[in-house]
Amino acid sequence: MAETEGESLESWLNKATNPSNRQEDWEYIIGFCDQINKELEGPQIAVRLLAHKIQSPQEWEAVQALTVLEACMKNCGRRFHNEVGKFRFLNELIKVVSPKYLGDRVSEKVKATVIELLYSWTLALPEEAKIKDAYHMLKRQGIVQLDPAVPMDRTLIPSPPPRPKNP
């Protein structure tokens, strides 16, 4: 059993995105999600840390960070969605795909994943208007030419609420 006492968001994320991981390590990914849910300012701190990792020049570190981001969107609820739905964070993703910023130095795989995630959130979180604004801006710029095919597990559609029990 891993020692979890005293772990910070940063230390969980460093482990979850460690370039020497041979594969995605879900113990650390879920540990990071749980830590976000425990901390008052978890989502604010987490998106800042994630943005930094997603912009890593090491593809594997960035890919793992995007997996963590997706896991957080599924497991950290509305507080986390609200932070992702701010231009402050969305701009960091835009930088990754835009040739005016980091786009020329980022792998096609990372850019495609960022675009898939953004598009999937426009479908799953229509109330987060800034996500749509950001995505449509990328389309206007020609950075996104066609909506990607989003795998079903990316759609973030919440499961229906439990039915009330009939007596």
Partner: peptide
């Protein structure tokens, strides 16, 4: 108030 000013400062990246 904090949220309002944060909203005002939150802009899409210039392209």
């Amino acid at each position: 108030l904090g949220e309002e000013s944060e909203e005002r400062d939150d802009h899409l990246l210039p392209m």
